[in-house]
Amino acid sequence: MRAGPGRRLLRWLGGTALALAVLAGLGAWQAQRIYRAPGPLAAPAQLVIPRGGADRIAALLAEAGVIRDPRAFLAAAWWSQAAGPLRAAEFAFPPGASLAEVLDILRTARPVQRRLTIPEGLTARQILALVEAAEGLAGPVALPAEGSILPQTYAYQWGDDRVTLLRRAEVAMTAALTEAWAERAEGLPLASPREALILASIVERETAVAAERPRIAAVFLNRLKRNMPLQSDPTVAYAAAEGGVLERRLSRADLELDSPFNTYRNRGLPPAPIAAPGLASLRAVLRPAESDELYFVADGSGGHAFARTLEEHNRNVARWREVERKRAENPQPVAR
C-alpha cells in the first residue's frame, strides 16, 4: 500500500514532534497576520469605551466598524493580556487601525481631551448653562457665585464631573486675581481684591475692544476717587434682568430702579460682580491707563469717545445720538 500524503509529510518532516511544531508555527504566523493586519475603519473615529468587560468592548468596536471580528479581538486581548487591562474612556482610533493598534490604544493611549471655552463677560447663569450643555461632562452642578469663574478654555475627559471642572475654574480665578492684585499700581481707590473683581466685571461688560479696557478702567477709577457715581449701563441692565442678560435696550425707567446694582442712583461699586471678567480686564483695573478722563460714550464704530469735561462729553453724546438717528432712518438689510 502506498503511503498517504499525511504519512509522506511526516516522513519528510522527520517525525511527529517536528510536524506539530511546524503546524503550530503556521498557526502562530496566521494569528500574527490577523493581529497586525489593517482594520476596517475608513476614517478617524472617537469612541467612548464603557466599563463592562472585553465582550462588551468587542461588540461596541465591531458595531462602530473599528474591528471586523469580535472573536478575533477577544482572542487577541486574551493572548496579549500581560500588556495590561483594557480601560474605560473616550479614545481616538485612526483609519485602518489593526487589532494590535486598537488594543494598544485601549491600554496605553491618552484619552480624548475635550475642551470647554468659557468666554469673557458671561453671567453665572450663562456659565451654568454652558457647563450643563457640555457633552461628556457628568453630574449635577449648582449655580456658581457671580464673577467666581475665570473665563478661558478648560480641558476635560468624557465622564469628568461638572463640579470638578467649575472648581478648577474657581481656583483659576482666585489665582489670577491674587497675581493681578499683587502687581497693582499704587494709589488705586480699591480696598481689596474683591473690589477689583467687581470693577473688572463692569469693564468687561462695557467694551469688547481690548485696547480700551485700561482707559475705561481709568475713567471709573477717576470717578471713584471723586466720589462720582459710576453711571455704568451694564450694571443697570444686570439689575433690570435680575442677574440675567437684558434682551432689550435700557429705558429711562430702568435708570430709576431701586437696586444696589444701579450705579446711576448709588455711588461707589455695586455689591458684587455683574459677570465673569477675563485676565485682560483684571489687569486693566489694577494697571489702568494714565488718564484724567471722566466720561465715555459709544462712538458708532464699536469703540468709545472719551472726555475730560462734561461739555466735551455732551458733544460726544450728541454725535452718538446723530449716529443712532441715521441708523434708524437707514436700517441695514438683514443678511440671508
Rank of each mutant, 00 (worst) to 15 (best):
L99D: 04
H304K: 09
Q32K: 04
P189V: 03
A307K: 07
S232R: 07
E312H: 11
A307I: 07
L165F: 05
L128S: 01
S301N: 13
F296Q: 02
E290Y: 01
I67E: 12
R110S: 14
D254V: 08
D254Q: 12
A241F: 09
L86W: 10
A92Q: 12
E312D: 14
G15S: 07
A129I: 04
I118F: 07
G121D: 10
L310Q: 09
A72L: 12
S259E: 10
N266L: 07
E90K: 03
L41Q: 06
E170Y: 00
I57P: 01
R71N: 11
A88T: 07
P5K: 09
R213Y: 00
P333M: 01
A88R: 06
D299Y: 05
Q126N: 03
E132P: 00
D69H: 11
V112K: 11
R68D: 15
L26I: 13
R194I: 00
A185P: 00
G39T: 03
L26N: 01
E90F: 01
R36A: 14
E324T: 01
P44N: 02
A72M: 06
A124K: 05
G244W: 04
P111C: 12
L60C: 00
R87F: 07
R327S: 02
E204Q: 15
R87D: 07
A138L: 11
F73L: 14
G39Q: 01
R11A: 14
P144R: 10
A62K: 10
P44D: 06
A133S: 13
P95W: 10
V317H: 08
Y264I: 07
A133N: 04
R194S: 12
A31D: 12
R252N: 13
R308M: 06
R327I: 01
G96I: 10
R114G: 04
S192W: 10
A92Y: 01
P271L: 05
P85Q: 11
D160W: 03
L177R: 12
A191K: 12
N222E: 08
E293Q: 12
A145F: 03
Q332E: 14
A129K: 12
E329K: 10
E247A: 15
W320A: 02
P95K: 09
P260T: 11
A185M: 04
G244E: 06
G187A: 07
H304L: 06
R71M: 10
Q152G: 02
G139R: 09
R249M: 12
R184S: 10
A88F: 09
A72K: 03
I118T: 04
G39K: 00
A240N: 08
L23R: 04
V102Q: 06
R2K: 13
R194E: 13
A42Q: 14
E322Y: 11
G15D: 04
R8S: 03
G300H: 04
A37V: 05
A253V: 01
L99I: 04
E242L: 13
L197S: 07
L282D: 10
D160M: 03
V236Q: 01
E212S: 05
R325C: 05
A138D: 13
G84P: 11
E324C: 05
A328G: 15
V203E: 05
P288L: 03
A305Y: 10
T108H: 15
G139P: 03
A172N: 08
L130P: 02
S301F: 01
L41F: 07
